[in-house]
Design a protein around this nucleic acid. Structure first.
Length: 474
RNA sequence: GCCCCCAUGGACUAGCGGUUAGGUCACCACCCUUUCAAGGUGGUAGCACGAGUUCGACUCUCGUUGGGGGCACCA
């Protein structure tokens, strides 16, 4: 039975790298008909951020990463960890350490200055059992595990056999002086108790895996299988960070990325199919995902490709759905959202241009506003350039022609406009461009005649007339 | 400083001893077109280096170089 978990620490927001880890765990579980569990690793009280846990679940839900079983919260399991710490203490596989943070800090500084590897000097290891017992009643202490002094080997599904030497690894603190366990202990205990079969996590954990292997051994447990995912990188190849990139999943949501596009993109960072397929339905992702096809090298997060992919998803999406999803963005921009069918028509005309849901308000606002804003460049280029008089005449004529169209449909408008061009020996562009700018305030936009139809006859004529007064001044 | 991992165009990657080194993003050109997009066609650009193994290495081994991660009473 495959059982995997995503185990974030609630220190603020879900990181895009965390999302990738969560996704791979999720896909692996679903592919193998296993369970995908959540565990909150909140053992560091100094880094607690209030509301972070709620935000985390909210964003997981937005991504559609549904989990099985009740999430495990580490801070509620202190007694459990303590029990295993005591077991290790009794077996003499761990010991109390009374060294203060200050002493440790100083020691570390000194070692680094001497270009030595920073490592605990084992002072408290020399304490006798009785002394340790006695001191424990007077002073705060931590518990350290004893690292064996020989080679530690383990297999990683992605990287194969990995070897470390125990003599190079510190006697790790497993229980802090505040009674909370450190990551290493809590992680091992919970993975065992939760019957986790595969630990799929980021590469930053690779070098602490030997500590975990030893803990499993000390506690007499069989370790799970490990798979260390390559890191997500900044454009400069360092570990993906807040400093250089947008890393909070909620930022992507707020910018108008679709969860399915984000997940699809992130899935591609470190995993691929043999035919290098790019776009996947979520069911397809589950069907095709295997750890064997995960890569080993770090991947730079390319915002440009994500943007393209988001556009692909938006273009493919039924207008009804796209409109629904755009609603919050339209509303936020202060545009009216009461006429859904009309919005749908506007969006339909602009669909090919939308890359982000947040693009929508700007692309459709001239349909909805009474007073449109004339883009200065557009106005200068098309309306006010030399020959403004001629443009003025054309617009006046067009307004006149349009006012006589009974059935104001794209087809009719186009026919009449082209007829006018022909009769007056004008190039169509001499008419189309000024009309577009007069009615929308800009040079770019959807298919002109469909746009005019949608704006409606009265508004079109009024805007053309306004334009003649305000922008040309004839 | 020590330990570990990694290495195909600018980016993501396919390749698992014999390929004109394939796909996607980006970029460029052309086509379509009333504009902007979208779409179509084509193009520029890559196996880090050096030894070995082999009839033959992008592919296997070793080394070099380069990049990254880790070395906390943080996860």
């Amino acid at each position: 039975m495959v059982r995997v978990r995503f185990a974030p620490s609630p220190t603020g927001f879900l990181h895009i790298g965390g999302l990738r880890t969560a996704l791979y765990n999720y896909l692996f579980a679903r592919h193998n008909n296993g369970k995908f569990l959540i565990r909150i690793e909140d053992t560091d009280r100094t880094r607690m951020v209030s509301g972070a846990i709620e935000k985390l679940f909210e964003i997981l839900k937005w991504c559609g990463l549904n989990y099985d079983e009740e999430p495990v919260i580490q801070s509620a399991r202190l007694e459990i960890y303590k029990k295993y710490v005591n077991e290790l203490l009794e077996k003499d596989l761990a010991y109390r350490c009374f060294c203060t943070s200050e002493r440790l800090e100083e020691m570390r500084k000194l070692q680094i200055a001497k270009k030595q590897p920073p490592k605990y000097d084992g002072l408290c290891l020399k304490l006798s059992k009785d002394d340790s017992e006695k001191l424990s009643k007077e002073k705060p202490y931590t518990i350290r595990m004893k690292m064996p002094q020989d080679e530690i080997k383990f297999n990683d599904i992605i990287r194969g056999e990995i070897k470390f030497h125990g003599s190079l690894i510190d006697d790790q603190i497993i229980l802090k002086s505040d009674g909370y366990p450190t990551y290493h202990l809590a992680n091992v205990v919970d993975d065992h108790l939760m019957e986790i079969s595969h630990v799929i996590r980021g590469e930053e954990w690779l070098s602490s895996t030997p500590k975990h292997i030893i803990l499993y051994k000390y506690l007499g447990w069989t370790p799970p299988q490990f798979a260390h995912l390559p890191l997500l990188l900044n454009p400069d190849k360092s570990k993906l960070s807040k400093r250089q990139s947008d890393v909070a999943v909620e930022d992507y949501r707020d910018k108008g990325y679709l969860p399915e596009a984000l997940l699809n993109y992130v899935a591609l960072l470190g995993w691929s199919t043999e035919d290098s397929q790019q776009i996947f339905e979520s069911s397809e992702l589950i069907e095709k995902f295997t750890l064997e096809r995960c890569g080993k090298s770090g991947a730079i997060f390319d915002a440009q490709k994500l943007l393209w992919l988001n556009g692909e998803y938006i273009r493919k999406m039924p207008v009804e759905e796209l409109t629904k999803r755009s609603l919050p963005f339209i509303e936020k921009a202060g545009l009216p959202i009461n006429n859904f069918d009309y919005l749908k028509k506007c969006i339909s005309l602009e669909q090919d241009k939308i890359k982000l849901l947040s693009d929508v308000p700007h692309l459709i606002d001239f349909f909805l506003k009474n007073d449109i804003i004339y883009d200065e460049k557009a106005s200068n280029k098309v309306l006010k350039k030399d020959g403004a008089n001629e443009v003025g005449k054309i617009l006046t004529d067009v307004a006149d022609i349009y006012s006589k169209i009974e059935n104001f449909t794209a087809k009719e408008i186009e026919m009449e406009t082209r007829k006018y061009a022909e009769v007056n020996s004008l190039k169509t562009s001499q008419i189309f461009h000024p009309v577009r700018v007069a009615v929308s305030g800009r040079t770019e936009g959807p298919s002109l005649f469909e746009m005019l139809e949608l704006i409606s006859k009265e508004k079109v004529i009024r805007r053309i007339k306004d334009t003649i007064h305000k922008n040309i001044g004839t």
